[in-house]
Every structure is written in structure tokens, then in C-alpha cells.
């Protein structure tokens, strides 16, 4: 069951909130759109810069720290590495996927979430990334959720 009173984080490449372009990258996305929903209606939109995007290694868990710190308890993204998924689970954040559509917007993703049409993701969906420095990702991608 989805939560109709919730703050949702979505990785984006631009900083224009509901109209921002979404990105498949999770840990190293430039921005997160933070959408607060109350009684199933969007009531506030914020944008935070992802300070983890330039991390040497461990960007996924760092981004999770940021998301948990922002108060979001749901994240909707595409490629979650093994470390990110582990950290999201530990931080009590529910992770969802969204349909593969290059034109999809933040707004459309929120609507799909509120209609309970997004798949819950519990294992990594992309291989671990070797960061700019000495990342140690060793995952094996397992494809995306079923749509």
C-alpha cells in the first residue's frame, strides 16, 4: 500500500522541480526533486543539490544520507547500485522504479506513484559503479521491475 502523506525524492538532471528532467543515475544525479504529498495531493516541491554526485566513492550511501536527512521516505529512480539499495533499506526509505520513457517527468512519476502503479524495488537494479576514486562496487545488475 502506498502512503498518501509522504515526501518523495526523485533523481533529476535539472533543478526545476516538477518539470525537471529525470535521470537513471541515483547516487551521482545532480539534483533531487523533493515532492511532498498530503492526502494524495502535491502540496510542496523542493529541490536539493546532490552533494554526493562528486564523491570519490560511496556516492550511493552518501546520497541516501542526504535523502533521509531531507525527510523523504520514498525514492523513485531507475538504476540503484548495491550499496545504495543497502543504505536505502537501512534508512527506512522505500524505493520504487518507473517506466522506461525518455520523456517522463517528475509530475508524471508522482501521479503514477499515487495511482500505486510503480514497482517496489528491493534489490539492486544496476551493477555497482566504480567511482572516480576507489569505489568497490561489485554488484550484478538484475534488470528492472516488470511494468
Amino acid at each position: 500500500m502506498i502512503n498518501k502523506n509522504v515526501k518523495i525524492a526523485i533523481p533529476t538532471t535539472t533543478s526545476d522541480g516538477l518539470n525537471a528532467q529525470v535521470t537513471r543515475r541515483f547516487g551521482r544525479c545532480p539534483f533531487f526533486a523533493l515532492v511532498s504529498v498530503e492526502n494524495g495531493e502535491i502540496n510542496e516541491v523542493n529541490v536539493i543539490e546532490n552533494s554526493a554526485s562528486k564523491a570519490m566513492g560511496g556516492a550511493g550511501p552518501m546520497a541516501v544520507q542526504l535523502i533521509v536527512g531531507s525527510g523523504a521516505t520514498v525514492v523513485v529512480g531507475a538504476d540503484y547500485g548495491p550499496n545504495a539499495i543497502g543504505a536505502l533499506n537501512q534508512g527506512g526509505v522505500s524505493s520504487y522504479g518507473y517506466p522506461e520513457d525518455p520523456n517522463i517527468t517528475v509530475k508524471a512519476i508522482i501521479d503514477l506513484y499515487l495511482q500505486d502503479k510503480l514497482p517496489l524495488i528491493t534489490t539492486q537494479t544496476s551493477a555497482g559503479h566504480v567511482g572516480m576514486g576507489r569505489g568497490q562496487g561489485r554488484g550484478q545488475g538484475r534488470g528492472r521491475g516488470n511494468f
Partner: peptide, 26 residues
């Protein structure tokens, strides 16, 4: 400890105790 970890292997959410993402620890 979380801030010092250069591999970001330590998670610590506010009001929680830190925890280790073991495979990332060097």
C-alpha cells in the same frame, strides 16, 4: 565517524546509531 569515512561505508541517520556497509569498508 560517518563524515571521516573516505569510502562512505558508515551510515548514520540522525537519532540513530551508526551502522557499517561492510563490503565498502577498507
Amino acid at each position: 565517524c560517518r563524515d571521516a569515512c573516505y569510502r562512505h561505508a558508515i551510515l548514520q541517520f540522525s537519532d540513530h546509531f551508526p551502522s557499517l556497509m561492510e563490503p565498502m569498508c577498507s
